[in-house]
């Protein structure tokens, strides 16, 4: 497995291009010159608008489709190498399984594909049903499952082989807030265990919260990549939280064009110009007020995403 200064590379895409035939000799470009690496033990986020090529990228990594050109390596091997698949777990977007089976039977089926013995399968199924909170519904046919239940059981099947690399396509879609929180906690726990997680999601707040590195795709091209910290630039907005603020200070700060908000007995000033912060702090203090905190706000991933997509050109609907 190749190593870099950043760590052991688990997934590597080099100048990958993917065209889909459209009939009559035409093609549509899904990915163009896409390159990135995923390192062992990180949570890697792949984000992008609809049609940006996220699912195509996942399918290429899984060996479900073939690249038009470029190179893909998973655990330093071809994605079509069968031994690689022993180390992978995959949860597709909006998963659908054999609905004539119940949860026990479904997990048993996938366990059999990995060649686990009966006792191994039994033990693993118990652990996984417990982990995804589906023990109560283990005998219910999948056709009666809600979307969220299907997502939970999908996660269980992705973990059946205790994979080193977990590929998750929109894992929290359709799941209630508690379930979504549980899944995020699980991802963090798996990272602690040294697992690598490749996450495709539209939920940018989640990606920002749990991912170590992020790639933003737009129209099949990588338009931003880096650690979350690298991507999120500080803004000019500064938030000052103060107490015992006099009316004069209110008036003065309002004239600077700052927004004022009351929060739990404190006053929150949000200055649009960072350079005015020292004089506002001085004014608060000179009027016997107390400054509780000063924070220079950074962009959210959503800000970065929207800015990047706009700069790169949004998909045109024709």
């Amino acid at each position: 497995m190749s190593n870099t200064s950043a760590g052991e590379v688990v997934v590597e895409l080099r100048n990958v291009r993917k065209e889909y035939p459209t009939g009559w000799g035409g093609t549509i470009l899904a990915l163009d010159d896409v390159s990135f690496e995923v390192y062992r033990g990180e949570i890697f986020g792949l984000v992008g608008p609809n049609g940006s090529g996220k699912t195509t990228t996942l399918k290429l990594i899984l060996g479900l489709i073939f690249p038009t050109s470029g190179e893909i390596k998973v655990f330093d091997s071809s994605p079509f190498d069968i031994s690689v698949k022993n180390k992978i777990g995959f949860l597709p977007d909006g998963p659908y399984f054999y609905d004539f089976l119940n949860a026990d039977e479904l997990l048993d089926f996938y366990g059999r594909l990995f060649g686990y013995s009966k006792s191994e399968r039994k033990e693993r199924i118990e652990q996984l049903l417990d982990l995804v909170g589906m023990k109560r519904f283990r005998k219910m046919p999948l056709r009666n499952y809600s979307k969220g239940m299907m997502q939970r059981i999908g996660l269980a099947q992705a973990l059946i082989n205790d994979p080193d690399l977990l590929l998750l396509d929109e894992p929290t879609t359709g799941i209630d807030p508690i379930g979504a929180h549980d899944i995020k906690q699980l991802m963090l726990k798996l990272r602690e265990q040294g697992k690598t997680i490749f996450l495709c999601s539209h939920l940018l707040a989640d990606v920002q919260m749990i991912c170590d590195r992020v790639v933003i795709l737009n129209l099949g091209r990588v338009i931003r990549k880096g650690t979350v910290k690298e991507l999120l630039e500080p803004t000019a907005v500064t938030e000052i939280v103060a107490r015992e603020v006099s009316e004069e200070v209110f008036k003065y700060v309002s004239e600077l064009g700052a927004t004022v908000e009351r929060r739990d007995g404190d006053v929150v000033f949000r200055l649009l110009d960072h350079d005015r912060a020292p004089e506002v702090i001085e004014t608060i203090r000179s009027h016997n007020g107390h400054v509780v905190s000063i924070t220079r706000l950074t962009e959210t991933l959503e800000d970065v995403f929207i800015k990047a997509v706009k700069e790169a050109g949004a998909p045109q609907i024709t």
């Binding site: 899984l62 698949k85 054999y98 594909l113 082989n161």
Partner: peptide
């Protein structure tokens, strides 16, 4: 159509 093939061919199945 049901995309069940995705989860099967992503397992060690030729």
């Amino acid at each position: 159509d049901r995309r069940t093939i995705f989860t099967i061919l992503s397992k060690p199945v030729r």
